[in-house]
Computed example of a mutant assay.
Amino acid sequence: MNAISLRGALLAAFACVLVGASFTANSVLGDYPYAGGQALRYGLAALLLLPLIHRPGEPRPAATLRLLTGRQWGRLALLAAVGMVGFNFAVLAAERSAEPAVPGVFVGCAPILVAVLVPLLEGRRPTRPVLYAAGLVAAGAFTVQGWGRTDLSGILCSVGALAGEVGFAVIAVPVLRPLGPKLLSATVCAIAAAESTVLGLVLDGGGFLRLPTGAEALALVWQAAVVTVIGFVCWYMGMQRIGAERATLFSGLIPVSAALTAPLVGTGSYGLAQAAGSCLVGLGVAIGSGVLGRRGATAPQAEAPAPKADAGPRAVRRSANVL
């Protein structure tokens, strides 16, 4: 594994660990209006990203955005709707009739779908090592989380959450190169905030926003500044370097990170099943990322790096305010 691939792997891993460790904040927002929470989270994240998206000597972000086609803008709107707002809404809906582990298990299958879909969309064959690694990661995620009570509605909504997690990676691939990780993150956050506002007005009217409590405000700031700003930028920087197939393998670290941190706040325990599942996830990530591959072996195709101007730069599931 070369330095660029290693850096990309570490960035993707860090982003997923941040998401997994954020479930304490998610539990605090259980009573806050869903759409309002999403609008605040993504709106604040977009504002925090603004100072980061332009450097002296680089094209202005507005000029870059003006070059996007209508189809690319549609893709960005779809990315925000499916991979962000829709994903979180599906998780919330699933947990109304299913235990949190159920959508977690479905979302744990995302690496398998991404490992198949991305190569097919690019006109090439899926890479066998990545497919095998994705299977190990999915099995490890299932072992960490287990299975819980559910019904047909919970299963269907969990499938929707899986689609959102896959979409968060697959839909972004064609727009990552022209925008770069930072501008892409800022743009989709602004779009997601607008979409959440419209959804809130339709579902709850003027009551979709309320003044958060102190704990809720801290949780929203944590999600916006850490999970969204840092997490999204690191995720897309990693995906830019190692490709969507290998980056999505690291989503298996989300339930592992959640399981490791749950005992610290008294919301769960870490036992033999969690340890075994963590080992499976680690093995799958190591195989898929090339750590265990032969020296000189060809790595799975990664995204081409963005031009220098753009080179600066989910999942699961305890509440609707996840990645």
Rank of each mutant, 00 (worst) to 15 (best):
S5T: 13
A12F: 06
F14I: 10
F14R: 06
T24I: 15
A25I: 13
L29P: 05
Y32D: 07
P33A: 11
P33Q: 05
Y34R: 15
R55L: 13
G57E: 11
E58C: 12
P59A: 15
R66C: 10
L68M: 13
L68G: 12
L76K: 04
L76Y: 02
A77K: 08
A90I: 01
A90M: 10
E99I: 12
E99H: 13
V102N: 11
V102I: 09
P103Y: 01
V116I: 13
V118W: 10
R125S: 13
P126H: 08
P129W: 02
Y132L: 13
Y132D: 14
G135M: 02
A139I: 07
V144D: 12
V144S: 10
W147E: 07
G148Q: 03
A161F: 05
A163E: 06
V166L: 05
I171V: 07
A172P: 00
L176M: 13
L179F: 06
L179I: 01
L179V: 06
G180F: 01
C189R: 03
A193R: 08
A193W: 05
A194G: 14
E195I: 04
V198L: 10
L199S: 14
G206Y: 00
L209T: 03
L211T: 08
A215V: 02
A224Y: 01
V229A: 14
I230Y: 03
I230G: 05
I230N: 04
G231L: 00
W235L: 14
M237E: 14
E245G: 15
V256E: 12
L260V: 12
A262Q: 04
G266P: 00
G271H: 06
A273C: 10
G293Q: 05
G296S: 05
A302L: 09
A304L: 04
R317S: 08
A320V: 00
N321Q: 15
